[in-house]
Amino acid sequence: MTRSEQRTVSTEQRTNKSDTASESQVTIERSNTVPPVEGAPDGVITLKDLEVFYSDFRAVTNVNMSFGSREITALIGPSGCGKSTVLRCLNRMNDLVPGARVEGAVAYHGVDIYGEDVDVIEVRRRIGMVFQKPNPFPKSIYDNVAYGPRVTGMKVSDMDNVVERALRGAALWDEVKDKLKQNAFGLSGGQQQRLCIARAIATSPEVILMDEPCSALDPIATAKIEDLMVELASTYTIIIVTHNMQQAARVSQRTGFFTAEADDKGQRTGRLVEFDTTEHIFGNPSDARTEAYITGRFG
């Protein structure tokens, strides 16, 4: 089956499958909800007037967008335009950066994840992340996958089943089922990245964030990860940052194009230029800056 055929199948699966969002609502209660961005799909995650600062430096400003359920959304743009900064805001990874602060709102099912009463561990359980370079822990394959459920205190009746389910979900089970106790560093780069995906989905998230997940992989491993993303989108909402525009065109349903603009002091701040269906962004963009980037005239 070709990737385009898989994309069609997974779209049908998303349509026919019962909505799992209701099963994964946040357990905390907040009174401050954020309305959907006008013109955007009903969002699992909605950004409203998002700005990100590192100390006095404003890295990103005025980002409004909404990520639809069981869709793949690609964030594209030149280096330094704030794509990864925005992605890390979606599960509060920027909390780990000294001096970082977020203004505006990041709402998960209408709940402001930066609210004072929000459990950050629970946010990261529901919104998992896969990083640019494969980063397995110096543990066995089994323990890498079991790590998330253990540290988050998930109630698990059979960890073996959780590990197998996650490895099957990452299309890795058949390759590692006979060596689960071996060190994860013995896997190839592509296998390590799929192991990191398995580790992310072991906690049963609703959203998976991927920051340049194929940049360190060869074309064959990249194709496997792309096929896997399409399959996973029948169950998960996926948001991917990529410099590979062909990749964005192949796997995503929606695309956001970012760029960086310099102020009178020469400081470059990331901005969302255009957010629309991938077909529209690549076929008939509304902004000349998007067209210039897509056609290779800059970036």
Rank of each mutant, 00 (worst) to 15 (best):
D276L: 02
G169F: 05
V151W: 12
L217M: 05
G169E: 08
G153W: 14
V145G: 01
A171P: 01
K265P: 00
E261D: 08
V251D: 02
G296W: 12
T33P: 06
V176T: 03
A221S: 12
D49L: 09
D56G: 06
T27I: 13
N62H: 13
I127V: 15
N161S: 15
P219F: 11
P205Y: 09
G148F: 06
L195K: 00
N16L: 14
V60H: 04
E103W: 09
V207R: 04
G189L: 08
I281C: 06
N244Y: 05
G80N: 07
Q193Y: 09
F185V: 05
V86G: 02
L228V: 14
G186V: 02
R125Q: 10
C81E: 02
Y108H: 12
L228I: 13
R250Y: 00
R271H: 12
P149L: 07
K181C: 07
S140G: 14
G148V: 11
D218T: 07
I28W: 14
K133A: 15
S140W: 01
Q132D: 08
M159Q: 13
G82T: 03
F53K: 10
D211S: 10
G189Y: 07
P136R: 05
V207I: 15
F185G: 09
K179P: 04
T278A: 05
D276N: 12
V145A: 03
E175D: 13
Y54H: 15
V52I: 15
L232T: 04
P35S: 13
K179T: 10
A198Q: 06
S188H: 08
T61S: 15
V273L: 11
A166H: 03
I201S: 04
P78N: 06
A260E: 08
G186K: 07
T235L: 07
V162N: 05
K83L: 05
D264L: 08
E116V: 11
D19V: 11
I239P: 02
A216G: 09
S66H: 01
S18I: 08
F298L: 11
D158M: 10
D42Q: 15
E261N: 05
V120I: 08
N91L: 05
I76Y: 03
L232V: 12
P35T: 14
V230T: 06
I127G: 08
N135H: 07
D264W: 05
T237L: 02
T61E: 10
G148K: 04
A170M: 02
S22D: 14
A184R: 07
V118E: 11
G190L: 00
G186Q: 07
C214P: 01
D49C: 09
V86W: 00
I127L: 10
T8N: 13
T15W: 09
I28L: 13
G299Y: 02
